[in-house]
């Protein structure tokens, strides 16, 4: 379960004076997504979608309010427990955020290695997911040797390889052609059917209409529609 209760967010500034003057990027956000739920997160650029996802992935702390991620009160956990919780969250970033000195294989294997899975298991799972995203032949390629679409598929493979309990994706189909976008959505819906809670931020309303699901619609830092 993911629950936001009266959540506000203001990005920290260098000085207290700047902090006081900084605008709230999220205001009064309240919603709940049950375990295994699927939500589209929609809204214009600058509406606050990425900030909301940062809170959901524990990379920012709210200024006010309470956030529960997978049943855990996010503000009340130690740094170690926060790291453990992050391992249960798969994230697809808008800018991919791949490690450029690592191969495609090592990028995808990274979450499993951080979770100290054994190498045989890692090899089997990484090979399978890379085959699924159509990159079985590019295991040793570095990100700069791959196209934008291929990099995005690597980022998606990395997010789902550990079978996360919560999958958060920011514009995951932005660099994909229609066929690849369809394959990605099949993968995400398959994970969702297996019990993964999914939140996908997108501008692509065509995609939203093809895969009907409740929406979190944002505007100017507020949630204007839930459901």
């Amino acid at each position: 379960m993911v629950r936001f209760d009266d959540v506000w967010l203001k990005y920290r500034q260098e000085t207290q004076a700047e902090d006081a003057a900084a605008p709230d990027v999220l205001r009064d956000i309240t919603f709940e997504i049950p375990d295994g739920g699927f939500r589209w997160l929609t809204g214009r650029s600058g509406a606050g979608k990425t900030s909301l996802l940062k809170l959901m992935t524990l990379t920012e702390h709210p200024t006010r309010g309470r956030i529960d991620i997978l049943g855990t009160h996010a503000a009340r956990i130690s740094r170690r427990d926060a790291a453990m919780l992050r391992r249960r969250i798969g994230v697809v970033y808008q800018d991919f955020r791949l490690l450029h000195h690592l191969s495609a294989y090592d990028n995808v294997a990274l979450p499993m290695r951080l979770a100290r899975r054994n190498e045989a298991q890692i090899h089997a799972d990484v090979a399978e997911i890379l085959r699924w995203v159509g990159l079985a032949g590019r295991l040793e390629a570095k990100p700069h040797e791959l196209s934008g679409g291929e990099q995005q598929r690597i980022a998606i493979a990395r997010a789902v390889v550990g079978r996360p309990k919560l999958l958060v994706a920011d514009e995951p189909t932005g660099n994909l052609d229609d066929e690849q976008a369809q394959r990605l959505m099949m993968l995400i819906t398959a994970l969702n059917r297996l019990g993964t809670t999914v939140v996908v931020a997108t501008h692509n309303l065509g995609l939203v209409s093809r895969y009907p699901a409740p929406r979190l619609d944002m505007e100017d830092g507020r949630l204007i529609r839930h459901g």
Binding site: T57, A83, L85, R86, I89, V91, L114
Partner: peptide, 8 residues
């Protein structure tokens, strides 16, 4: 990135 992926 690796912090976000759950590195201690």
């Amino acid at each position: 990135i690796i912090h976000g992926l759950g590195a201690l």
